[in-house]
């Protein structure tokens, strides 16, 4: 079964099967929008809020997703599979990456990320 995932920040829409995580579905099609980190629920970079629809989720590192996050449907895209059509909003710390063409940043951005 394939579902339709809408990334609200970028209006990107892509199909994602219930055998794939939201992040796998996006990456496999070469789409952009959700920042890609470790893909294992550990780093918290692919943090999204599910604004509509249903999903199932696997274990996520507690240091990046709190119980309060989960109650607000804030999850990691690498650990969630859709069980209906979904709308998501990217809320991670790399949100700014959405506004640039690609994830390689200028040197100024690198210094901010590394030092500040």
């Amino acid at each position: 079964m394939r579902y339709r995932v809408t990334i609200e920040n970028s209006s990107e829409i892509y199909p994602c099967s219930e055998q794939q995580t939201l992040l796998q579905g996006m990456e496999q099609l070469g789409k952009r929008g959700i920042p890609v980190g470790c893909r294992g629920g550990g780093c918290g970079v692919c943090r999204v809020q599910v604004t509509s629809g249903t999903f199932s989720k696997a274990k996520m590192s507690r240091s990046v997703i709190s119980e309060a996050d989960v109650s607000k449907r804030v999850v990691l895209a690498c650990r969630c599979t859709p069980t209906s059509d979904l709308s998501i909003s990217v809320v991670g710390k790399m949100e700014r990456a959405l506004s640039s063409e690609h994830l390689i940043q200028t040197e100024d951005d690198v210094s901010v990320a590394a030092v500040g």
């Binding site: 920042p35 550990g42 780093c43 790399m94 990456a97 390689i104 940043q105 990320a113 590394a114």
Partner: peptide, 22 residues
Amino acid sequence: HVGKGIFYYERTLNDRFLTVLT
């Protein structure tokens, strides 16, 4: 020159190297 220092062939740092941690 840090890009070349870290990744000698790519000669650029990717954001993931600096932000993806556990």
